[in-house]
Amino acid sequence: MTSRADRVFAWSVGALALLVPLTLLGIALLLLVDAWPSVARYGLSFLVTTEWDPVKLVFGAGGYVFGTLVTTAIAILLAAPVAIGASVFLVEYAPRLVRGPLAFLIEVLAYIPSIVYGLWGFFVLVPFMRTTVEPALQGTLGGVPLLGALFSGPVVGLDLLTGGLVLAIMILPIILAIAREVVSAVPSAQREGMLALGATRWETVSRAVLPYARAGIVGAAVLGVARAFGETMAVTMVVGNSSTDISPSLFTPGYTLASAIANQFTEADSELYFSAIVEIALVLLLVAIVVNAAARVLIRRTGAAREGMIL
């Protein structure tokens, strides 16, 4: 027998819960409406043309797309191997005594606000890149054909490489925490089956644990990509924000999509300018939804205990 009160309670809880999908829908719709003038005017060419001139009222976000792709690629290439390696070490190698505290420390670090990473990047990493790392890169690899182009131009420290590096440090604990959950969720029967065949510990990891956890680990990395893609403050503070040119050099002081919004939102003084900036936000939103959905599906497939963990 369900009482009336029971039904009222269930419906009110359901209504509150319904606000969650409605919020998502509301955000997407409002951004679409505001971005429409720009969407209608430029279509898909918005994403590939690089001329962004508020004075002449010409808007192409290609340079920002490029900067975002480059910084995200640097971030994931640097962070994913380290994070996945460390997660495997924590689950499969580390003594039980250090495993818990270390994993917890890393989880807390995933909570640190991005502005703090930005501050550290701006005051510590940028000078270090300018005085030490980038001259060294230019000195050693700068002369190599093709590869050298990546490290050409003036060395300022505020550039795509530093932006990617800060992002890498920022998403490292996020990927690590999720990958750790995924690797822990691999049934011990899989490990024992491989060990009993006479496998070394590394062979157990590489032939039984990692294949089993593959989807979830990819999901963790994809979630890291999603985070790097939309991250604003940490990148804005170190990426340079002065050139929309597409140049092979990682030392270009470029923009990312998110840093373009942060830098120019309050300056948008015409409808088209504003609309173009909202379209950038819309692009970030759509990419985030697609990438996150994909990552969650992948992580869920491996049955990680806290697959919904929010970081």
């Binding site: 951004l31 939309g230 991250e231």
Partner: peptide, 8 residues
């Protein structure tokens, strides 16, 4: 929603 870029 948790995955949305906060700037958006």
């Amino acid at each position: 929603i948790a995955g949305l870029p906060s700037v958006a």
